[in-house]
Design a protein around this nucleic acid. Structure first.
Length: 718
RNA sequence: GGCGCGAUAGCUCAGCUGGUUAGAGCGUGCGAUUCAUAAUCGCAAGGUCGCGAGUUCAAGUCUCGCUCGCGCUACCA
């Protein structure tokens, strides 16, 4: 057991609101874990914050005609408010635009630079000659090579989701000036990740660093280890830690060549965890350093699977390179949550937005949390459906949990007019709620609850939140069974003594739930406290203290305790609400379809004309007729066909990127037109000696360009 | 193409280092019950553990091949 915990949840990017996938992926598991630790009296700090830098934000600002500052202020406010409303209890929700963060990340940069962790390298990047600046990937749009979307960004096509680099775009253009960008050399700082590969491999797979055991890799999730090893096996390459950007943390200005350079997200966002911790310490008069630099601290990152490599390899490399920091003891990444059978998509508005949920289903925050846990993508992608949400909420939360609480309180207040927990005989036997036809006894029953909650805690510690939630709910079921087996409504006249004992015990179940449910259902737990007229939880050791009382077989709520007002802990989700939410999703979908249909005819995006050339330029090209003699799929390639082409006077081996459009059989014997004097180029170990000319339409479909049937090979085209 | 992860009851998912009749929740059927938001409790039915081989006394669990889904990654002269 570590002495203290530092828990982080992925920094949300401040250019959009939060959807259920984010919640189920990172924030909710982190929150449950942290709330549990606090209830167990642990020293824990839980940090997060808005990631407010980068080109995507400036692009959005430009589009909306506002400043980047206005964008991040807006979304930071929304995010912060959403987290609060859905009950994510950060100790500090920070933002990367704060000065203390700039200072912290620049400090890292300086330190790494001094320690020789960087190499400075010059690469070619697209440059806008009209706007006079280098272009971030996001500033370049062009035609997607995969789906032919004419407006794909330089880093990603939002239509088909493919990850791209700007050089892959067909006919790239700058979003700043509309001009065609040109490549220019620019110098950047690269982190020598290759030099960290060995210890990272050792550390990931054995948990050992320099002979010291830091964690047990068996406790890490399969897909996390798999993803890391996949990268390690391919070999780590130096990675640029700086970019030519205008919105971000400056590269320390005293360094030569720093003008116009900003820290790349690798050296910006994750260091936000540290900045946030520093700010928390300042606000609370505490020392932040033990949380990041002491070996008896457990550092845990909650993230989605898209962030695994970042948090398991690159950030640890940075921390280790710095030299003073500890490494994460676990990175329990979740997979993705789908929505109604499809991937959640921000750009297509196929999502359930958390702030909208809070607005449209007020008071149902815990129902969402419950459903998120119930369907948490812990080991594989999972599925959220509104129908499932309704069913789960109505059966498990309303029918089982809320109803149990209600029937205990209503029965008690019905039978004991003073509205107090009854005096009772602890030695009185009754039927246990934990098994059919088993005799129970008051103290043993309380210990039974304790054992169950201990098990729940163990599952939380192992990041098995679904299982932990199931165990919690079993307490409620056992409570229901307790009432069912003893039937106080029938025996209250003939055997009032036993009924007192049973109902008093029922109240203990509710009291136990009012503490144990807090990690999952914080709002409901608080309402339970009120119904029981118990003080609000202090959030520091409440569960630990409660378990100690249960262990002694003593009541959590003494006889004579005046209860509060019974009420409905959860309300049923009616069909109309589900129908309305489904309609909302479908209308988003219809809007997308309409937008796509409307855009389709207009987006016959003819490539812009290239610059005028002279006849001499054309004459330099030696274009010849030819015929494909043999064709085979290129080993290990999805796109390349290896062709033998007859040019009459000789044969050529030509590699052509048409494998996704034509099979080797289809192209055999085709007459083609070949650019014959193109410089040979090796690809995948084979030299390509020319280029087959193809026509390409708007959708990226290809067509051979051929002379008339039977035309001889080897003659010129002009 | 390479690599990683996944494929288990109608649905959503657990099954650690291989070991007795493969589990849970929901749904379904039957029964009990009525304090409670037509709630609850019990019992039962339901699976050739993606497909095909192999290792083993023994495989959902290990090995190999294949199919499908998701993710990362390379090649379009």
């Amino acid at each position: 057991m570590k002495k203290r915990y530092l828990v982080t949840a992925a920094l949300p990017y401040a250019n959009g609101p939060l959807h259920i996938g984010h919640l189920a992926g990172a924030y909710l598991p982190a929150d449950i874990y942290v709330r549990y630790l606090r209830l167990m009296g642990k020293d824990v700090v839980f940090v997060c914050g808005s990631d407010e830098h980068g080109a995507a934000i400036t692009v959005k600002a430009r589009k909306e005609g506002v400043t980047p500052r206005e964008i991040v202020d807006k979304y930071n406010a929304i995010l912060k408010d959403t987290f609060e409303k859905i009950g994510i209890a950060f100790d500090m929700y920070h933002r990367t635009s704060e000065p203390i963060h700039h200072e912290t990340s620049q400090g890292f940069f300086r330190r790494l630079n001094e320690k020789g962790e960087f190499i400075e390298e010059t690469t070619e990047q697209y440059y806008d000659e009209v706007a006079n600046q280098f272009l971030a990937d996001r500033y370049i749009i062009g035609t997607c090579p995969v789906c032919s979307n004419p407006d794909a960004y330089g880093d990603q096509c939002e239509k088909c989701g493919t990850t791209l680099s700007p050089t892959e775009l067909i006919s790239p253009r700058s979003t700043l000036s509309g001009s065609t960008p040109v490549k220019r050399p620019t110098q950047h700082w690269f982190l020598r990740l290759d030099q960290h590969e060995n210890w990272l491999r050792q550390w990931i797979n054995t948990g050992e660093l320099e002979g010291v055991a830091l964690h047990n890799p068996n406790e890490w999730k399969n897909h996390v280890l798999g993803q890391c090893n996949s990268w390690l096996e391919q070999g780590l390459q130096p990675r640029a830690m700086t970019r030519d950007l205008d919105w971000g943390v400056d590269v320390p200005q005293e360094l030569p060549g720093s003008a116009g350079k900003k820290l790349y997200v690798w050296l910006d966002a994750p260091i936000g965890y540290i900045s946030a911790t520093r700010q928390w310490a300042l606000d609370h008069g505490r020392d932040w350093e033990p949380y990041w630099k002491s070996e008896d601290t457990a550092l845990i990152h909650f993230i989605g699977k898209d962030n695994i490599v970042f948090h398991c390899l690159i950030f640890p490399a940075i921390l280790k390179a710095h030299g003073e920091y500890i490494l994460p003891v676990n990175v329990p990444a979740n997979q993705f949550m789908n929505l109604e059978g499809r991937k959640i998509s921000t750009s297509r508005n196929w999502a359930v937005w958390v702030h909208e949920y809070c607005q449209e289903l007020p008071g149902q925050e815990d129902a969402l949390r419950y459903n998120m846990v119930k369907n948490m993508p812990e080991q594989r992608d999972s599925e959220f459906t509104w129908k499932g949400f309704q069913e789960t909420t109505n059966t498990e939360l309303v029918n089982n949990l809320a109803n149990f609480v209600n029937r205990v309180l209503v029965l008690t207040q019905k039978y004991y007019e003073d509205g107090c927990a009854p005096q009772f005989d602890a030695a009185r036997p009754f039927k246990s709620g934990w098994g059919v036809e088993t005799e129970g006894n008051y103290a043993a029953e309380l210990r039974r609850i304790r054992e169950h909650l201990l098990e729940m805690g163990r599952e939380i510690e192992r990041f098995n939140f679904r299982e932990a939630l199931r165990l919690l709910m079993e307490v409620s079921s056992a409570g229901n069974a307790l009432l069912q087996f003893n039937e106080p409504w029938r025996t209250v006249k003939e055997d009032p003594e036993t009924v007192r004992t049973v109902l008093h015990l029922g109240l203990q179940y509710v009291a136990a739930l009012s503490v144990a449910a807090r990690p999952f259902l914080p709002f409901s737990a608080e309402r339970l406290r009120k119904m029981l007229a118990l003080p609000p939880l202090e959030d520091q050791g409440d569960l630990e203290a409660m378990l100690a009382v249960l262990e002694k077989g003593e009541p959590l709520l003494p006889a004579g305790h005046l209860l509060g007002v019974a009420g409905h802990l959860f309300s049923r989700i009616p069909d109309e609400v589900i129908a309305a939410q489904m309609a909302k999703l479908e209308s988003a979908d219809a809007q997308n379809a309409a937008a796509a249909a409307a855009a389709a005819p207009k987006t016959i995006n003819y490539a812009p004309m290239k610059d005028i050339i002279q006849f001499d330029d054309f004459a330099k090209m030696d274009i010849r007729t030819g015929k494909i003699l043999t064709a085979e799929k290129m080993e290990k390639s999805k796109k390349l066909l290896k062709l033998q082409v007859d040019l009459g006077f000789e044969q050529r081996t030509i590699l052509s990127g048409i494998a996704e459009h034509f099979t080797p059989e289809e192209v055999l014997g085709r007459q083609v037109v070949v650019l014959a004097n193109l410089a040979p180029r090796p690809m995948m170990g084979v030299e390509s000696q020319g280029m087959i000319l193809m026509a390409e339409d708007q959708d990226g479909k290809l067509s051979f360009v051929s002379p008339q049937e039977g035309w001889p090979s080897g003659f010129g085209v002009r």
